[in-house]
């Protein structure tokens, strides 16, 4: 099979047209993972033992089963649109990874910060909100950003449940024209074009997070 530029240019707009679905699914799934990940982390740290154990079990279960299996299962078990199913399942799956990132950030905050909060009589909720999370999250923003890129690259899985993201569109074109090479290559190219700047941006964040609070730029607010 040889490369056909004319065909490539012809199908390019169709595939680019699906970029919105890919990005949409990524953004929705990512937001779910950021919020749910934090909820997972906090519930795991609950002083009510049964709850934290249950949470640990749930997280372990989600993390150790393949996302594609989860996608199929939820797709056939619940009456949700393919897009919703995809975004929710990926979001929940990645929440377990994101939760681990939050945990590492939280554990890096010294015990003395908890003690100082107690000495000022903050409530538990206030301590989290005002003292712990604002210190735990900025250092892990690069790691969180990394998961955004990983998640983005995982969206072709959604083709498995017929979400018309880029790979699915490429497959449809391929099935119609019996030419797969160009559509698939275009999908890869588009992923590269989107991922690479994001990766650069995250590297920039990584550099910045080294110098929070009190160094040259003190405008870093959380």
């Amino acid at each position: 099979m040889s490369w056909d530029w004319e065909f490539a240019f012809e199908v390019f707009p169709d595939i680019v047209g699906a970029i919105g679905v890919t990005i949409g699914a990524t953004v929705v799934a990512y937001l779910i993972s950021l919020v749910l990940g934090l909820v997972f982390t906090l519930l795991r740290r609950s002083s009510f033992k049964p709850l934290s154990l249950l949470m640990a079990g749930v997280i372990e279960f989600i993390r150790t089963t393949p996302p594609l299996v989860q996608l199929f299962f939820v797709y056939y078990a619940f009456p949700m649109s393919p897009f919703t199913t995809g975004a929710v399942v990926l979001g929940v799956h990645y929440a377990t990874y994101v939760s681990e990132v939050y945990r590492s950030g939280i554990e890096a905050v010294p015990t003395s910060q908890w003690e100082a909060s107690k000495a000022l009589n903050f409530s538990k909720a206030q301590t989290w909100q005002k003292v712990i999370l604002p210190q735990a999250i900025p250092p892990v923003i690069p790691m969180l950003g990394n998961y955004l890129i990983v998640l983005f690259k995982e969206t072709p899985l959604l083709a498995g449940i017929f979400v018309t993201e880029m790979l699915q569109v490429a497959r449809i074109i391929g099935a119609d024209t019996y030419r797969f090479l160009e559509p698939i290559a275009i999908v890869g190219f588009l992923f590269l074009v989107l991922s690479y700047p994001s990766a650069l941006f995250i590297r920039y964040l990584e550099k910045r997070s080294g110098k929070l609070h009190g160094s040259a730029e003190k405008g870093v607010k959380t």
Partner: peptide, 27 residues
């Protein structure tokens, strides 16, 4: 009760003013 620690334990992400006002406002 209030306590001052050996290692100060200020909140590094807050300005000096906010270190001193966050608790009075919220607590």
């Amino acid at each position: 009760i209030g306590m001052v620690f050996q290692q100060y334990n200020l909140f590094p992400h807050m300005t000096i003013m906010r270190n001193c006002t966050t608790a009075p406002v919220n607590v």
